[in-house]
Simulated assay, not measured.
Amino acid sequence: MSESNIITGQYVRISQTPAGLGSRIVATIIDIFVIFFYLEGLSLLLGITKIDIGLLGMFLLFYLPTIFYSFLFEVFNNGRSPGKMIMKTRVVKKDGSTPGLGEYFMRWLLQLVDIGFGFIGILVIVTTKNSQRLGDLAAGTMVIQVNNYRKIQVSLDEFTYLERNYRPVYAAAERLTLNQVDVIRRTVDSDYGDERERRIETLSTKIHSMFDIPNDGIPHEKFLYTLMRDYQHYALELV
């Protein structure tokens, strides 16, 4: 499962893993059972008490909670329905922040398409990078695994050597992940003895190939340092 990494305006690095298709399906099944037992229990209670709740009561107690089940739980329970709580998943915005009422409503509004035409929802989830259904794509949200959610304060020292008018050399640096940058940093900063130069050259060659960066003759170590500097420039543009 891919990992989504963001650096926020408060210089906090957020690492979050999209929930898998299996977790989302199981959470949905659990929620269906919760709705079923709620309706059955309420019907049994009204049958025993013989209370006539009328059409308005039927709408308020039966139809409204069933129709707005996921929307209400996500709004008032931090993006979690009972199914999501059990599966340890949660709805967040793509930048890691908490969705607003509009985002939750958009997810709910498109739920009919995603779940009513199940194959569409499943197809979109398995083909999008962050395992998003149509409602997520429209709302700018995603469902994450809560136990893989991490917030790390970024040291501003990482950015002190960047000049205000710095212009990045390699546009491909914007596509690097935090994990890849960490590998580059550890490679150039660590002391591998006689192996260091070979490791740097190997990593440089691999990155040139992976990101289709033309070899302009720059020394391998300088290339890696430049790539990190470019990455940090792009990261700061997002905050």
Rank of each mutant, 00 (worst) to 15 (best):
L176A: 00
A138Y: 04
R167N: 13
V169I: 12
N148L: 11
Y170E: 03
V146S: 02
N147P: 02
V154N: 06
L162N: 01
M142F: 00
Y161A: 09
T177K: 04
R150Q: 08
R175E: 03
D157I: 14
S155A: 07
R175M: 10
L162H: 01
R186K: 05
L178P: 09
G140I: 08
T160N: 11
V183A: 07
Y166A: 09
E158K: 12
M142W: 00
L137K: 03
L156K: 15
R164V: 15
Y166W: 13
A139Y: 01
Y166Q: 12
Q180K: 13
V143C: 02
E174M: 09
V169K: 13
L178C: 07
I184H: 07
N165S: 15
N147E: 03
T187C: 14
N165I: 15
A171V: 06
Y166I: 14
D182V: 14
T187N: 12
K151W: 00
I184T: 12
N148G: 04
V146A: 02
K151C: 01
P168M: 08
Q153N: 08
R150P: 02
E163H: 09
E174H: 07
T141S: 00
L162D: 01
D182W: 14
T141N: 00
V146M: 03
R164D: 13
Q180G: 04
A139N: 02
L156E: 15
V146N: 02
R150D: 06
L162M: 02
A139L: 03
Y161H: 05
T177C: 11
F159L: 12
T187A: 12
E158C: 10
Y166H: 15
V143W: 01
V183H: 02
P168S: 10
T177F: 04
Q180W: 09
S155R: 06
Q180H: 07
V188W: 05
I184P: 10
T187Q: 10
A172N: 11
R167E: 14
L137H: 04
D182M: 14
L156A: 14
F159A: 10
R185C: 12
N165G: 15
Y161I: 11
K151N: 06
T177I: 12
T141D: 00
Q145E: 12
Y149W: 08
E163Q: 13
Q145R: 15
V146G: 00
I184F: 13
N179H: 13
Y170K: 07
L156P: 14
S155G: 07
V183G: 02
R186H: 10
R186L: 05
A138C: 04
V181G: 08
Y149D: 05
Y166N: 10
Y161T: 09
N148Q: 10
L176C: 00
I144P: 00
V154E: 09
K151I: 02
L162S: 00
R186Y: 04
N165H: 15
T187E: 09
N148F: 06
